[in-house]
Amino acid sequence: MYIIALSNMTQASKAQFYLNRMRIKNRIERIKSPNKSCGYGLRVYEDPYRICDILSDINIKCISITTK
């Protein structure tokens, strides 16, 4: 499992909406962001780099990827 950190809830919701349409399993989670602040991320179960590539299609920038 991986956590992809995103900048805010709107970005996380946009990402989730897009990934759900592609049937890529994901879940929004409240996380400690890479700058040690409050943030939101997506828990994903497939190759996170591939998912970040997919998300770049809708102008979503992945801030970091953590393995869980």
């Binding site: 900048s7 805010n8 809830m9 709107t10 700058n35 040690k36 602040s37 409050c38 939101y40």
Partner: peptide
């Protein structure tokens, strides 16, 4: 609800 450890307002919208 975002960038909460910063004294500055987030620069990204809509936040």
């Amino acid at each position: 609800g975002s960038d909460s450890n910063s004294i500055e307002q987030p620069i990204f919208t809509p936040d």
